[in-house]
Design a protein around this nucleic acid. Structure first.
Lengths: 182, 182
DNA sequence: TATAAAGTAGACAGAGTTGTCTTGTTTTTT
DNA sequence: AAAAAACAAGACAACTCTGTCTACTTTATA
């Protein structure tokens, strides 16, 4: 049933994101979700298949969250402010849709799976491209240079927040990007 | 002897960086280095101890490389140009001191080890602080705001280069930062 | 040269991993 | 109500992992 499938994906997402994919075994997902092993393997043919479904779920969550945050921004400056304000809110665990902050799930997963041509790495790459496209569509005036700047700073803010614990990085990005826009 | 110890660290660094720490077992390091297991455990009390020595080695390599690259920059703009030109060179596998590019070893390791208070995570955090300090000392005119911008964009460029394969991200950073400095 | 230290090779224990298979129960559908 | 599908619980195989231990060999030191 779709109910068990969803439960498995939700549990996996929570555990994978919090602990890293390679640190979580199938048995732990089964124990916490309360689902039987046979049920898992009737819905997913392998752990990798479950991982891909989990990445897909996270991607959907993140896109939905981002759309809400950028909705109604009526200038490029407002897009910048809304985006990085939302990121800061995420960093400080104030975004229930994204869970407790432990960096970007896609950056982290890319780090864990070194094979660049694996389905997992390719999915992470596509995710970043789609996020870029969403930001682009919310900008009121086309500006590829600014779009590049926003995307690079977004990655920098997330990484800085995670590795060094600097949660103010997002607001620094706003300062840099808005000052630059004048 | 120090010779075996160094061989173990060099082999570990190469394998850990290329494949991810959790994807490489002790036995593989022993097979490739040709060192016996007992020798490894006479130099290091555990795998974690070897990981920390490997992080330390990478840190030294990176700091030495960075110092060379920033040496003699006589303006903040030159610091920016040199830093990001060096990063681009790294991204395109033209920096033998750093090996074939697979993102930042410290970002990747932070992603693999979720416990923020583990020695591994703390080491990665300290590494980033030290890199920041080196950049600061090379700047000819104090500018904390610009320093923040440089560090955030550096993380963004590395992450973008690794996850999305955009090796031009470094040059985009130069454009953004130098245009901003006027 | 004799002794001590360091290294090799690999078996082994104990735990963990993914994935299969069996047996019995619950739930859904016809 | 009967038949079919889905699920639970867990044993099991086959593998990998870290770390210890033993027996033997090479290298360095006194």
């Amino acid at each position: 049933m779709n109910k068990k499938r969803k439960l498995l994906i939700d549990t996996s997402l929570s555990l994978f994101y919090s602990n890293g994919i390679n640190s979580i075994g199938i048995n732990e997902i089964l124990k916490i979700s309360g689902v039987a092993k046979q049920t898992l393997y009737s819905h997913f043919e392998s752990k990798e298949s479950l991982i891909l479904a989990t990445l897909e779920q996270r991607h959907m969550n993140f896109i939905e969250w981002l759309e809400i945050k950028l909705q109604g921004a009526d200038s490029n400056e407002k897009v910048i402010i809304r985006l990085f304000t939302a990121l800061e809110s995420w960093f400080t665990n104030s975004e229930p849709m994204l869970g407790d902050f432990r960096g970007c799930f896609f950056i982290n997963s890319s780090a864990e799976f070194s094979n660049k041509s694996s389905d997992i790495s390719l999915f992470c790459k596509r995710h970043k491209h789609k996020v870029r496209e969403i930001i682009r569509l919310h900008m009121t005036k086309e500006n590829p240079f600014l779009l590049d700047a926003i995307c690079i700073m977004k990655e920098g803010a997330i990484t800085s927040a995670y590795v060094t614990g600097d949660y103010s990085s997002a607001m620094k990005c706003v300062q840099i990007l808005t000052r630059y826009e004048c």
